[in-house]
Amino acid sequence: MSRIRGLGTDILHVSRIEKIFKRGPEPFSISKHVTKLAERVLNPHKELPVFQDYRNQNTDSGFRECVRLFATSWASKEAVYKCLDPAEQRKFSMAHWYKQNDQHGRPFIIGPQYSKIHPMDKFLLSVSHDADLVTATVIRSEDGDPISGLSEAGIRQTTP
């Protein structure tokens, strides 16, 4: 039986990320400011390499993908932060978490370091986009099954 332990939500104007990425004299593809920000927010193993691939394309569509990836990741992690207990919020680092999609396109978010300490905690993520806005909602629940019993993606294998 699951128990709801926390609920978090976040909303973000995607254009803010675009503005930040375009700030400064250096082009987006080599901007040190962008690199530093990306390293602070994106997971170095799962998100940052994808971001860098898009960035290295040096195209408008690559730029848009970077903005979308960063904005969605940011909103999802803000929502995670808000559903954590205060003691865990103090230890929270965005780069420790990553947001991806499963084989059905459903988003999930996982923090491997957090899960080692709290194997019973499960995070359910929902993301929505409209025009310039992205929203993310996360429910933290405590499950009877440790997370190690879940799929590699950190979610249950279900039939759609």
Binding site: H33, L37, R40, W74
Partner: peptide, 10 residues
């Protein structure tokens, strides 16, 4: 907000 704060901290 949180995004501004990250920018300011950087």
């Amino acid at each position: 907000d949180s995004l501004d704060t990250v920018e300011v901290v950087m």
